Each structure stands twice: as C-alpha cells, then as structure tokens.
Amino acid sequence: MEFEMKRMQAFFPASLEIQEELLKAGFRVPYDKESGRRTPIPVVVSSRVERKLRRNRLLKARDFESDGKFALVPGERALLELELTERGFLVLRPKPIEYHLEEMGFVSVPPRVWGTWASFSLPFSAYDELVGFLGEFRDDNGNGFYTASRGSGGRIEVYAYKGRKGKDLGIPVFGYALGLHGLTLAEEYLMEKAKENGVPEERLRYLRLGLKKRRETKAGLKVGIVWENGRPVEITLKLATTEPRVRIQGLYGELVGKSRGELARTDEWYMVVHAGDFMAALEAVGRAFGDKSY
C-alpha cells in the first residue's frame, strides 16, 4: 500500500552523531567564527504545497523562484509505502521523490534536545483505507493506549501513546533507518561544502551520514490526527528518540543531546512498529472527539 504524503521533514541537524562525523572529516559544522563559513547540516523537506522561506535558509533545491530575500519552492512529491510482515510488524517506508534542503531556522531550544526529529503527514482522506488495511489487527479493548493534545488557534493535534510512560514517544519503534545517502541534492551540497572547507573529495565516500536504531535507543512513533476549525485534515507521524544521551566535542566546546541512533551508510528509509500498535493508535485518535462522523 502506498500513499502520497502532504509533507515530510527529516531534521538531521538534531543528530550529534552526524555532526561529529562531519567534524572528524574536517567540516566546520555548523559555523566557523574565524572564517565566517557556514556548514549547516541540512533538513530534508518535501511539501505537496509550495513553500516560502527566507532565501538564506534554502540550501539546495532543483526548482525555485527568488526575489533575493525570499525563495518560493514549488510543490513536491513524497510517498509513504506500508508493508505488513508475516510476524505482524508494519514497515513504513518514506520515499522522498522531490524534495529540497533547508537550514534550520532560529529556535529557542536546540534541536539536539528535541524528542521528535522526523515527521510525516498524510491527508486525512487516507484514514479509512489505513484502518481497512490494518483491520485484522483491531483490538476493541484498546488497553494501554492514551491520547494527548496540543493546539494553537483553530489547529489541534491529537496523538496516541502506549503506556503511561510513553507520552514523549508514542508507540514503540523496533527499527528505523534515515539518512542523507542516496539523495542527489545532499551529495551535491556536501561536495560544494567540501571545497569550501578544504576537505578532500575522496573523503566523502567514507562518511556515514545515515542513522539506524541501536539496541539501547529508546524510540517511538507518535501517530496523530490534526484538526483545523473542527474538522480532521491530516494524519501525522513523528519519529522520536529520548535516550541514551550522547556527548561530542563541538567546534567551541562540549555538546550534549539525545542520541538519534547508530551511524551507518544507508540510503534506505524505514520505520518498524507493531501493526496492532499502529492500528490501536489510529483508532484512539479517531475517537478523540467522539464517534467518527466526518
């Protein structure tokens, strides 16, 4: 089963592991005070609707318009493939077909201490098809599942989590892989930055810029529904990690943050959860505002 996503964002600047890998290779990440050179780790973004952002935040795109101050990136395509295994696991495979690279904008909390570091959005019209696809995993009791919400203005996001201690994670994730390998724009960007930083080109082939779940990584997937003005508009999926903590030596001192996984050379993107957990989470958020009558 495959769906076209509304939006996809993978916040690789949240990974101290990737930052350390680039620093060891000779890149001045993310900013060199002496030379003024900037080498931000890119956020990989795909949005079905056009996206307007400050020109200096757009690191790389195939097609965009700019007036010098702002850039307008046209709508892009990203897919989410879902596969059921014989053992009852659900494998979700994000596929960025068209995408661009952004620099992280200013935030008050450093991304390395966030929980969520990758997010995927489907149109709400996919809800019934998803529930039908996972129907054999329905648990009418829904034991152990809870919901939480947050809102701003007319927009409310409701997500499900498993177990009272799972609020920061959602449902358990048993494996994942995400990375910058295999992304042509990322390869071009790093080639340009290697020249700026005086990094030998051949060194790029040895970099590990992908992340896989380690045994000790505490990872979860928040499954939610976003409501706008009283109507559900999208299904949101957010990959989060909370433990263990890692320390690296940055350009200007020690940095501490949440681990995003084990470095790997991978161009495969996937997340693995129990199909029953995903189904229960979907139905929990579907019932959040009463009977589903939309």
Rank of each mutant, 00 (worst) to 15 (best):
Glu2Phe: 09
Phe3Ser: 01
Phe12Arg: 01
Ile18Gly: 00
Ala25Asp: 00
Phe27Val: 02
Arg28Gln: 10
Tyr31Glu: 08
Arg37Thr: 11
Arg37Gln: 11
Pro42Ala: 11
Arg48Phe: 11
Lys52Ser: 14
Leu53Lys: 08
Leu53Met: 14
Arg57Tyr: 15
Leu59Asn: 05
Lys60Arg: 15
Asp67Glu: 06
Gly68Lys: 03
Gly68Phe: 02
Leu72Ala: 04
Leu72Gln: 04
Val73Asn: 00
Glu76Pro: 00
Arg77Met: 07
Ala78Asn: 02
Leu101Gly: 00
Met104Gln: 08
Ser108Asp: 05
Pro110Ile: 00
Gly115Asn: 12
Gly115Ala: 14
Trp117Glu: 01
Ser119Arg: 11
Ser119Thr: 13
Ser121Pro: 02
Leu122Met: 05
Pro123Tyr: 06
Phe124Ala: 10
Ala126Arg: 08
Leu130Cys: 05
Glu136Lys: 15
Gly142Glu: 14
Gly144Thr: 12
Tyr146Asp: 12
Gly153Cys: 13
Gly153Leu: 12
Gly154Thr: 15
Ile156Asp: 15
Ile156Ser: 15
Gly163Thr: 10
Leu169Gln: 05
Leu169Tyr: 08
Pro172Glu: 10
Leu185Ser: 09
Leu190Lys: 05
Lys193Cys: 05
Ala194Thr: 04
Glu196Gln: 12
Asn197Leu: 06
Pro200Cys: 04
Glu202Met: 11
Tyr206Asp: 15
Gly210Asn: 07
Lys213Gln: 12
Lys213Asn: 06
Lys213Ser: 09
Arg215Thr: 12
Arg215Cys: 07
Gly224Glu: 06
Val226Ile: 12
Glu228Trp: 07
Asn229Trp: 11
Pro232Leu: 11
Pro232His: 08
Val233Met: 06
Thr236Asn: 13
Ala240Glu: 09
Pro244Arg: 02
Arg245Leu: 13
Lys258Ile: 11
Leu263His: 01
Thr266Tyr: 03
Asp267Phe: 04
Phe278Ala: 09
Glu283Arg: 15
Val285Thr: 11
Gly290Ala: 09
Gly290Asn: 10
Asp291Ala: 15
